[in-house]
Amino acid sequence: MSGATKKLVVCGGSGFLGSRICKAAVSRGWDVTSISRSGQPQWQNVTASSSPPAWAHRVSWERADIFRPAQYAALLTGADFVVHSMGILLEADYKGVLSGRESPISGLQKAFSASKGRPLSSSSNPLHQEQQQQQQSETQLTYEMMNRDSAILLAKEAAREKVRAFGYVSAAGGAPVLPARYITTKREAEDVIAGEFGGPGGMRGVFFRPPFMYDSSRALTMPLAGLSAAGAMVNGLTGGILGGFLGTAVVKPLKADLVADAVVEALDDESVRGPVEVAQLEELGNKSWRKTMV
Rank of each mutant, 00 (worst) to 15 (best):
G3C: 07
G3A: 15
T5E: 12
V26W: 04
T33F: 10
T33N: 08
S34H: 07
S36E: 04
R37C: 11
P41Y: 04
S50N: 08
P52G: 04
A56Q: 00
V59L: 03
V59R: 02
R63P: 07
A70Y: 05
Y72S: 02
A73H: 08
L75V: 02
A79F: 01
A79L: 05
D80C: 07
L90R: 09
K95I: 07
E102R: 15
F112T: 04
S113K: 11
L120F: 11
P126Q: 11
P126L: 11
L127G: 12
Q133N: 14
Q134I: 14
Q136L: 10
Q140R: 13
L141W: 15
M146F: 00
S150Q: 09
S150V: 05
L154R: 03
A155C: 09
A155T: 07
A159Y: 12
K162R: 15
A171L: 11
G174P: 15
A175E: 06
A175P: 06
P176E: 07
V177A: 11
V177N: 12
V177M: 15
L178V: 07
L178G: 04
A180L: 14
T185C: 15
D191R: 15
V192H: 12
I193E: 09
G198S: 13
V206N: 09
F207A: 04
P211G: 00
M213H: 03
Y214T: 10
D215A: 11
S217Y: 06
S217C: 14
A219Q: 09
L220H: 01
T221W: 01
P223M: 03
L227N: 03
S228T: 01
I241F: 15
L242C: 05
G243K: 02
T248M: 14
V251L: 05
V259G: 05
V259I: 13
E270F: 12
E270I: 04
V272Y: 14
E277C: 09
E282L: 13
K287C: 12
K287Y: 00
T292C: 10
